[in-house]
Amino acid sequence: MIIRIELNEKPCSIEVDDPRVTLLDLLRERLNLTGTKKGCDRGQCGACTVLVDGRRINSCLTLAFSVDGRSVTTVEGLAKGGKLHPIQEVFISRDALQCGFCTPGQLMSAVGLANEMPLRNDPEQIREAMSGNLCRCGAYQGIVEAIMDYHGALSTDGATHETI
């Protein structure tokens, strides 16, 4: 089957001969877009999070055939023309990453969550919304601060420690 998707705002068509191929493996093994990571392959860690039609999903549990005709955004599609997306900037400034392996998924989740719910100035809401993205290094606090920054709403109760 030929899968036609809009991939990071560009049309992409690829012949896939095997219905078992997941969107994650399509990206990583067949399109060489390896920014999206495989941490568990079972929807339990969030490292493979991408946006499909603007919604964040676990690409490991999505068959490639099922996304035919839809738009897919991966971490490679965030920066535009060599300029980082604001969420990428704040992840660096808030040290919201350590090993970096979960980071692409965290970023896509951070971008996608605003499409799901009305955001309040509330770090608890961000923590809950980001709980599908595990970070074993423990960068959670920086991640929440970065997302609060990104959504333009870092409140005093969100800044729980002095930043340098």
């Binding site: 390896t34 990571k37 971490v75 965030l78 992840f91 660096i92 040290d95 990453l97 980071t103 692409p104």
Partner: peptide, 23 residues
């Protein structure tokens, strides 16, 4: 100095190459 990570750019763009990213 509290420098931000020099590898931060690679990691937030998906360009940092981990072992399984090699094909």
């Amino acid at each position: 100095q509290p420098l931000t990570r020099l590898d931060g750019h690679l990691k937030v763009t998906g360009a940092a190459v981990y072992a399984a990213d090699n094909n």
